[in-house]
Design a protein around this nucleic acid. Sequence first.
DNA 1: ACTTTAGCCTGTCGGC
DNA 2: TGCCGACAGGCTAAAG
Length: 270
Amino acid sequence: MPELPEVETTCSAIRTALVNKKIEKIIVRQPQLRWPIDLKAMKRLHNQPISAVNRRAKYILIQFPIGTLIIHLGMSGRLCLLNKDTQAVKHDHIDWQLNDDLMLRYHDPRRFGAVLWAKDLNHIKQLQHLGPEPLSLDFNASYLFEKTQKARCPIKALIMNQKIVVGVGNIYAVESLFLAKINPLRPSKTLSSQECTALVTTIQSVLKKAIQQGGTTLKDFYQANGQPGYFSQELNVYGHEGQPCKACKTPIIQTRLQNRATCYCPKCQK
DNA sequence: ACTTTAGCCTGTCGGC
DNA sequence: TGCCGACAGGCTAAAG
């Protein structure tokens, strides 16, 4: 589910409450997520202080002196800061209780998410081969143009490929391509360098705006404070099949690309 | 080496 | 009302 803005929103919401606190108790109710949870590693966290909370791609990194807790929210995962006495409900899989009144709770109905432990982040296969952060200088027009020239896949598949650039999922790919006026089905090779410039710009502005709005809530996602993300109202094409294009009134088309809903305006997006 | 497909899981929604 | 299939924001392993 959550793409970069949702992960970033979650990360910054939990950071202040976690940094410099110690883990007092850990409860694992369901160790079977995308990969089984390393229960021994979780036990080692007892009494360990949290030194930092960061994001890399769609991963949340909770740093301890002895290693890093890596959390991926998958499609339906959620992290909440709650009072320790809050009753667990269905799909509340893990609690990390702190040395105050609070705990961090992981909730994930579909269990596509992951909770991993790394003594050394460099040894984690999921973090290797990740492309540049979309909001960094490494992601720029000449970089993207070079990648488009070498690729054989449609442009939408390219920008969703985490080896090319991280953090862009289905919704933000579709929205960025609409704003850049590029058809998602276009072979990557056919993009001009000008179009690559436009696409880098729209990806960055869409992600920045979504972060400001607290992410996008379709169904599952809520910010750590319980509020929905407000970017939903900014969506131009995602979920708008059959509705008039906001620019030219042509009905928005929905098709499937790599088995994912793909919406675009057939007139604006060439 | 690259690109596409199937599958992991549960919940929800629309059609019959 | 109930049953069934399709679908949902990600990612990986296997197949092409």
